[in-house]
């Protein structure tokens, strides 16, 4: 039997919707009131979790035998458009079933602190250092939270909107022509 691309797509989407609901039900059963939202962004299930519960949720998703999100694909940071919050985003992967979800959590930009995930995944070590380096998110309990890509002397968090992208020591550019 030949499957049309559109069939395949809707079938996939259906199974992803099931995954979204399944994870959502489990999270709500175990962490009542901590799940801010559960939604499909394009074809990807995305959960927003309160910062206080983030570490427990990650531990649960990793260790739950049925869900089995045992692999941390990525961990990164973001800043919201109103510049008042910092976010940390986790991408989890269940390799045996090839299922993926994304988790987000948002913190006040003046106190960006949350527990480290290095106790669950050693791979989180460098990714958390990178997030600290560029956004200034402090991961409590991280064994070695210092800059990883930028020079140690840097005193800004360059991906935050409050800091300019351009190097302030540039001398050969006419500001009126380059919009600096």
């Amino acid at each position: 039997m030949r499957l049309k691309v559109s069939d395949l797509k809707s079938q996939n989407l259906k199974s992803i919707m099931e995954l979204l609901n399944q994870v959502n039900e489990k999270l709500n059963a175990n962490f009542a009131g901590q799940v801010v939202s559960a939604e499909m962004l394009y074809d990807f299930p995305v959960f927003t979790i309160k910062t206080e519960a983030m570490h427990d949720v990650l531990k649960f998703l990793k260790e739950d035998a049925e869900l089995n999100f045992h692999f941390l694909t990525d961990l990164t940071g973001m800043q919201t458009a109103d510049e008042k919050q910092l976010g940390v985003i986790y991408h989890l992967h269940n390799m045996p079933k090839n299922l993926r979800i994304r988790l987000k959590t948002f913190m006040d930009i003046n106190k960006p602190e949350l527990p480290t995930a290095t106790d669950l995944w050693p791979a989180a070590n460098w990714m958390e250092r990178e997030t600290y380096d560029f956004f200034g998110v402090r991961f409590k309990g991280h064994p070695n939270l210092k800059r990883i890509l930028n020079v140690d002397e840097m005193d800004i968090f360059p991906m935050r909107k409050e800091y300019p992208l351009e190097d302030q020591e540039r001398t050969d550019k006419d500001n009126s022509m380059f919009g600096r």
Partner: peptide
Amino acid sequence: SSGGIFDTYSVLQGIDK
């Protein structure tokens, strides 16, 4: 010589610095 197109926080703006 000057940083070139990389007018950004991570790039040295010319080795003569």
